[in-house]
Amino acid sequence: MRFRLSAILAGFLVLTTATAQAQNKRDDKVKEDRKNVSELGDWNYNDLPAGMAEAKKTGKPLLIVFR
């Protein structure tokens, strides 16, 4: 019984560690994406009000990409 409980706990730990690692990877990717796109300087990253304000000011049309 004790062995069984230990095995379940070990399995749970492996699963939660793997899930946490996958989560961290995804977080890193999202942050990396923001850094890369922001560095290009051509895009308003995730900031629609800023894009709208710039379009109003410049008279340019907007290209809004969901990705």
């Binding site: 994406d33 923001r34 895009w43 308003n44 990253y45 995730n46 894009g51 990409v65 969901f66 990705r67």
Partner: peptide, 12 residues
């Protein structure tokens, strides 16, 4: 592309 104001949205 520089004739547009470009906005990238990453979430809903």
């Amino acid at each position: 592309m520089d004739q547009f104001v470009c906005v990238r949205i990453v979430q809903a």
